[in-house]
Write a protein that binds this DNA or RNA. Structure first.
Length: 569
DNA sequence: CAACGATCAA
């Protein structure tokens, strides 16, 4: 008898009890399997069945543990493992993958390592499934190095091993290495499947690896990976690599578009400054009866923010709860505060922070304070900075972003002693300034630059080119600003090197290493500043090159000295 | 006697 509903399962259970289920383990295991694992099952009912078995065999133990590992309370899986040991029942090669999954979900690195030791002692360390689970567990716990050690030791790495380690590297901000691993995987002749390409596309999106991304698109076509999530990953990759039109083409071809596909497309359009298209697409989505989720609304609000549409922003924020039944999160309120503040409604922005049912985080405060500075409302920004500084002291928030903001504000108004205090505070709290970097892809390889770095093999040529660029820019009317970094550095020569921001170094590298008509595409890990924009505008004009910059917030397309995304602010 | 691992967006 096939079981497909929980009622059927209960009927079968009743029958088994009546006729005495002692001998009929096959029916009972079928029943148990359904109750514990199927989507329409019932975990506590499964546990009741489990508890009614006097001496459960391995299958029952493992299935019960597996059920917990998939549930919202994976810690019960670990508890059950202890019970199992207590009752002298030995774990086997099926037990460990579920246990390791639970450790991963719960970020229990320490326990995970202990299980690793147990696995080693029981001689199961060369089981492929267990090794793959170990890789995944270590990645979930943020220990990608430990995962890599397991991976290296594997004698037969299969496609799941490769996918797991690649995906883990992407999650751990090691996308460049993830792409190198994919290259190795191809060399070893392992065929990627749909899960693999999704992970590799995430890596491409992360670092702006368009060439590799296109290559993956070809593989997807050849192998006919038709799942929506693959298309969604392609849309995201193309969007994040600056090719919004290619993203759109992939989107149009999807037959059954789900929330993820819609949301990814909408946020791609929003980040490219195409607010109108983003909003239109959202309306179409609603017409097609696809229910938006909280992230969809975030994308819509950020489209409003980029366009400065205050009324529309408010209306979507209201609709979100009333029409779609979604509770706004800090991201939504933060976006709305930012929208108001950028449009110059500073008082309203501050009031919204006080009114909203969630406590503002430091990102929200930071955006508002910065907006006050941009709009020249010094009283408000001083007051907010004082308030926020107290918050920071009182709650011991470790937030280097806020310190950087304060430092920048003091520097821009020439309050050097205040700025020095911020620096002292950062030292005391052990905070370091996030280091800006710029990535660029040439011939399928990712190059990453930070200000002042000299480790690139072409460093000498790049800095020569930079000097040349600086001269050309000055001829075209650029006035070098006394950079903030320069003031902190004693050594003058070092200061001059640092003065070249990372994106300028990347552009110089692109100018000497790419074709004249290829567009230059840069991924920054921080938000780009006004000075960066002015310089990019000029370079694109003087050298007649198209330059695309992606920063934390959005894209900026520079062509012949014009920026198609409006001003940076 | 049954069974196990990797998947998307601010």
């Amino acid at each position: 008898m096939e079981i497909s509903t929980i009622t059927q399962a209960m009927q079968l259970h009743a029958q088994l009890i009546k006729t005495g289920h002692g001998k009929n383990t096959l029916s009972l295991s079928k029943l148990f399997n359904f109750t514990a694992l199927s989507y329409s099952g019932n975990l506590s009912y499964a546990r009741a069945i489990f508890d009614s078995i006097p001496c459960p065999n391995s299958y029952f133990w493992n299935t019960m543990i597996r059920a917990y590992s998939k549930s919202t309370e994976p810690e019960h899986a670990l508890q059950l493992f202890l019970t199992m040991q207590h009752k002298d029942h030995k774990p086997d090669k099926f037990t460990y993958p579920f246990i390791l999954k639970s450790c991963g979900c719960l970020r229990k690195t320490h326990e995970g390592k202990q299980f690793h030791a147990l696995i080693y002692k029981s001689g199961l360390e060369f089981d492929r499934f267990i090794q793959n689970s170990l890789i995944h567990m270590y990645c979930d716990c943020g220990e990608s190095n430990a995962a890599a050690r397991v991976f290296e030791k594997m004698l037969e790495k299969d496609v799941v091993s490769w996918t797991s380690i690649i995906d883990g590297y992407v999650d751990d901000n090691r996308s460049t290495e993830a792409l190198q691993l994919f290259g190795k995987m191809e060399k070893e002749g392992i065929e990627p499947n749909d899960a693999t390409v999704v992970s590799v596309l995430r890596a491409c999106a992360d670092v702006g690896a368009l060439d590799t991304g296109r290559k993956i698109h070809q593989i997807v076509e050849e192998k006919n990976f038709g799942k929506v999530n693959v298309s969604t990953a392609l849309i995201d990759m193309y969007s994040k690599c600056g090719c919004i039109d290619s993203a759109r083409k992939v989107f149009e071809k999807i037959e059954q578009k789900d929330v993820f596909a819609w949301t990814t497309m909408i946020s791609g359009l929003a980040s490219h400054g195409k607010s109108k298209e983003a909003i239109d697409l959202f309306e179409t989505m609603v017409e097609m009866h696809v229910k938006p989720d909280v992230r969809t609304i975030t994308a819509v609000l950020s489209a409003c923010k980029n366009a400065g549409w205050v009324r529309e922003g408010y209306s979507y924020l209201n609709k979100m709860e009333k029409r779609f039944g979604l509770r706004p999160t800090i991201q939504h309120y933060g976006c709305m505060v930012d929208l108001l503040a950028r449009a110059g409604y500073l008082k309203e922005a501050e009031q919204l922070i006080k009114r909203m049912p969630i406590e503002a985080d430091s990102v929200v405060w930071r955006n508002l304070i910065w907006a006050c500075k941009v709009h020249g409302d010094k009283d408000r920004s001083d007051r907010l900075m004082n308030q926020h500084q107290h918050l920071q002291m009182d709650f011991k928030i470790k937030d280097s972003g806020t310190c950087v903001l304060f430092g920048n504000i003091y520097a821009s108004t020439g309050e050097w002693s205040e700025k020095a205090k911020v620096r002292q505070l950062m030292n005391k709290k052990g905070l370091t300034k996030p280091k800006g970097s710029s990535k660029i892809e040439t011939k399928g390889t990712i190059h990453e630059f930070v200000a002042g770095a000299t480790s690139h093999p072409d460093a000498k040529k790049i800095y020569e080119k930079l000097d040349e660029i600086t001269e050309d820019l000055i001829l075209a009317g650029y006035q070098p600003k006394v950079s903030e970094v320069m003031l902190d550095i004693e050594d003058e020569e070092k200061a001059l090197q640092l003065h070249h921001h990372s994106e300028r170094i990347a552009v110089a590298f692109a100018l000497i290493s790419t074709n004249k008509d290829a567009r230059i595409q840069i991924v920054k890990n921080l938000r780009s500043c006004e000075d960066c924009h002015n310089v990019m505008k000029l370079i694109s004009k003087v050298y007649e090159r198209e330059i695309v910059i992606r920063d934390r917030i959005r894209f900026h397309h520079f062509k012949n000295g014009n920026c198609s995304c409006g001003d940076y602010w």
